[in-house]
């Protein structure tokens, strides 16, 4: 396993798994983001702090994300569409999973590329047809992976990464969401 270098510290993850088995409180994380309206449908969100391992934590740098809508929506396109952030989240989560599982299984990766397509019928959000949902109709992820492994092993990597993916779960299963006015 030491001969494989995908840049994932699997030992740290496995150690964490052992430690957290006996300390479920430390496993409770809170992820945070805050956003500010700019103008039109343009907003800016920032992410810096989060909570985990029983303490407040911070990212090395604050990250700033602009979200807007494209010109075909009569907007200024100062950033990607909010629903596209879901694709970004899913792609990066599954890719991180592929790398971690590959490291754990002793598979050397050379390249991992994914293309994502989320089908979306916008009649839902526009209120044209009440039977059309607001969110994605469906999402398709296609991985192109070059690695020292059989096709079967690569398929197993991708399956396992879905099985352990936070974003895959968040998109495929319902989540209780509260939105309130402070």
């Amino acid at each position: 396993m030491t001969t494989v270098a995908n840049g994932v510290n699997v030992q740290a993850l496995l150690d964490a798994r052992e430690v957290l088995k006996g300390a479920p409180e430390a496993a409770q994380f809170v992820w945070r983001a805050s956003s500010k309206w700019q103008n039109g449908v343009h907003s800016t969100s920032t992410v810096k702090e989060f909570y985990g391992l029983g303490a407040e934590q911070t990212h090395r740098n604050e990250a700033v994300f602009d979200a807007d809508h494209p010109e075909v929506f009569a907007a200024e396109d100062n950033g990607i569409t909010p629903i596209e952030y879901l694709l970004v989240g899913l792609a990066s989560c599954l890719t991180a999973g592929v790398a971690s599982v590959a490291q754990n299984r002793g598979i050397q990766l050379r390249s991992v590329e994914a293309t994502l397509e989320g089908k979306h019928d916008i009649r839902g959000i526009l209120g044209v047809d009440a039977d059309v949902r607001n969110g994605f109709t469906d999402i398709k992820v296609t991985f192109n992976i070059d690695a020292d492994a059989s096709k079967q092993d690569i398929e197993a990597l991708v399956a396992q990464s879905q099985k352990r993916s936070a974003v895959f779960d968040a998109l495929t299963n319902p989540t209780d969401v509260t939105v309130e006015v402070a």
């Binding site: 398929e155 399956a159 299963n173």
Partner: peptide, 15 residues
């Protein structure tokens, strides 16, 4: 409400 992850549980079992 059912999970949309049906394909993957099939893939896992088939593999």
């Amino acid at each position: 409400l059912f999970s949309g992850g049906l394909r993957n549980v099939f893939a896992l079992a088939d593999l």
